[in-house]
Design a protein around this nucleic acid. Sequence first.
DNA 1: CTTGCTTGTCACCGGCCAGTGACTTATATG
DNA 2: CATATAAGTCACTGGCCGGTGACAAGCAAG
Lengths: 242, 242
Amino acid sequence: MTAAARCAPAWQLSRKAHGKLRGEAALTGERPKPAPRPRDRDGTEARIIQAAAAIMARDGVGALGVNTVAREAGVDKQLVYRYFGGLEGLLERLGTDLRLWLGDAADAEIAGSGYAEVITGQLVAHLAALRANHLVQAALAWELVERSEAVARLGAAKNEAIRDWFAQVRATAGAPPRGVDATAINAVLLAGMHHLVLRARTAGDFAGMDLTDPASWARIEAAVAHISTAMYAAPAATIDDA
Amino acid sequence: MTAAARCAPAWQLSRKAHGKLRGEAALTGERPKPAPRPRDRDGTEARIIQAAAAIMARDGVGALGVNTVAREAGVDKQLVYRYFGGLEGLLERLGTDLRLWLGDAADAEIAGSGYAEVITGQLVAHLAALRANHLVQAALAWELVERSEAVARLGAAKNEAIRDWFAQVRATAGAPPRGVDATAINAVLLAGMHHLVLRARTAGDFAGMDLTDPASWARIEAAVAHISTAMYAAPAATIDDA
DNA sequence: CTTGCTTGTCACCGGCCAGTGACTTATATG
DNA sequence: CATATAAGTCACTGGCCGGTGACAAGCAAG
């Protein structure tokens, strides 16, 4: 499991000898030859990772388990243990790939003149990318529920991606207007977008907005752009906080 | 049940001495008198509800189950079925109480002059109330992960509370400035606050903000107030969208 | 008193899950 | 060729969970 993996460290097993042997089947009848999958380690690993991603995106993280992943992949669960060291390692591998996916989502072109325009464009692009990526959504939702080590690892990768993104934006757009806490404002806007996307995938609404209606998303996008533009507009010298 | 694991119960059941029938005890030896809990239906129901709330707030919704609740309450799980009709009914009852809690959170005084001031004060108050209420946080996180019927019921209650809140605010503060999509802006801000609070209880950070540091929350609060004030400031006639 | 309802308690079932040992067979290596 | 390794498969253990049936004891009405 995740955090509470060490549940029963000290049970002693009074193991009885296994009765049946494989060859016994010949006595009862002819075996229909199960036709094992052709050997392909890399392909099998890919199948397992793909299955985990599919379950995560479709059914959420709660449905992830060694049995379910193996079943989805059409593979014996033993292979999950052998190749990844259990669910823990599999999730770590999945996190690596997820990091790549995040990179894709953050690859929107950074363009525009001035901080306000650049940030606004980036926020809107981020919203669209996140809305399209169900896997990242599942990971994000997971982080809000679990407190495990795997989550922390995955979250660290994501944070690093966001940090890089911020640095890139700042390098392109320059500094935000003086006296504006851009980090906090961006955090609020980003968090708002994340939350609305996550609400859409389950509840379908939030605070009077029907999140199943594309029109609502247009309004949300406009609101974010509106806020971002207003906050980072050039003549913001009148606003000052400590 | 999610991946969160509970590993405790083995050492509680060490008393194995049960015979097939209750009366058999007299044959084998004197019974130490299991001393059943004195009869108190209302008290027992309250204990169960309280236990469910405690688990939800402490361990999250993933840890909720008939067994765990009964164990936490120190009560046989059969009573959960008898009194509430299973987990479903228990959660419904809990939702009723939760609705009251939500009411508490929304009972901040609506005061101020003008839409901007009223909304800003309400948002800040809502943030503080939500930060203090771990049970509502758990419910909110749950809604982002599950897609069940109980969730929908609970969410409906919450939405109704928010709707009432909006109506009250509008009645007090009047309409927002023309040309401003207040519903969408408020949704973004509200969603941002919710998301940051939910991140704080698990990940502890978001987009470069350390959510374990009270100073970060001061900045977030300032950012929300800043945005709200700027968006709803009276001379907003220059801004127009469709 | 007897009868019936309720409260509290326990035992048990089937099902799913995590994890392990062991077997078969294909492939590479000598 | 023989043999060691690795891939794929199966069987099995132990455990928790949801859910149900049954039992003992309190309590009240007749």
